[in-house]
């Protein structure tokens, strides 16, 4: 806090301008952040495609390492798909705030008059839209090559879509905490993976329940509850962590 007495002067200058231009433009700011991040990410297609390629590659490795036997694969497919998707989502986390931190636009975000909580939520939403959602849509295709039993494909995609949203929110806390560190990558996975476990349990559980023919609504409801809880709590932790990383 007190370490940046210089930046607090510039702080006020920056503050003054947008306040006069549009009063309390929270929705405007959120929309602007959304559009900006979407445009930036779509311009760097590699970063969007990398997690998907990683997901497909890891799934290819399992039959080679274990066995091509479809019966065996069908048993372990839900777990493999979920773990691989989780790791792919983890892989993309480091870039969530990294480039904004490097070019200084993250600092601008902190200085904006709009609450950082809302703006960071917008950033996380873009991250999910460009990693979590594509992973969820791609998973059924990879399910086919793992001989995933029929009837569980929709549940797989749905559970991943719900679950990766929680993963993006929780992971963003870790990404925000480590963005100021030179070698934050390994640390990030140490911080984030233990927190991912509940989502993994209920996500993979949903697919397994679908295969066994049990009801999946309970699993999906719990995944939804986890998402609601992370939606309520994670943005505050993300905002606090970003402040620590920038001001520290």
């Amino acid at each position: 806090m007190h370490s940046s007495s210089q930046s607090s002067e510039t702080n006020q200058q920056v503050l003054a301008v947008p306040l006069r231009e549009h009063k309390g433009g929270l929705m405007t700011a959120v929309k602007a952040t959304l559009m900006r991040d979407l445009t930036l990410m779509l311009r760097r297609r590699g970063e969007v495609l990398n997690p998907l390629v990683f997901f497909a590659l890891v799934i290819t490795l399992f039959p080679i390492a274990i066995s091509p036997d479809p019966e065996l694969l069908a048993v372990i497919a839900p777990g493999l798909l979920w773990v691989a998707a989780l790791l792919a989502a983890l892989l993309s986390l480091d870039s969530l705030f990294r480039s904004d931190y490097d070019d200084g636009s993250l600092e601008q975000l902190l200085l904006a008059p709009q609450p950082l909580v809302a703006l960071s939520l917008a950033k996380v939403a873009v991250h999910w839209l460009l990693t979590g959602l594509p992973l969820a849509l791609m998973a059924p295709i990879l399910g086919i090559i793992l001989a995933l039993p029929a009837g569980s494909y929709a549940v797989l995609a749905l559970s991943l879509a719900l679950g990766t949203a929680s993963l993006s929110l929780i992971g963003a806390i870790g990404a925000a905490l480590t963005v100021g560190l030179a070698r934050g990558g390994v640390l990030l996975s140490l911080l984030v993976l233990p927190l991912y476990i509940p989502v993994l349990i209920f996500g993979a559980g949903a697919v397994q329940a679908a295969i066994l023919g049990d009801g999946v609504s309970a699993h999906l409801a719990i995944l939804g509850a986890l998402l609601a809880a992370s939606l309520m709590l994670a943005p505050w932790a993300i905002a606090a962590s970003l402040r620590i990383s920038i001001n520290g």
């Binding site: 806390i173 905490l177 911080l191 932790a237 606090a240 962590s241 620590i244 990383s245 001001n247 520290g248």
Partner: peptide, 12 residues
């Protein structure tokens, strides 16, 4: 920075 370390560890 010790202050950042303290606050980050507290949040985590």
């Amino acid at each position: 920075s010790r202050d950042s370390a303290s606050r980050a560890a507290s949040v985590l």
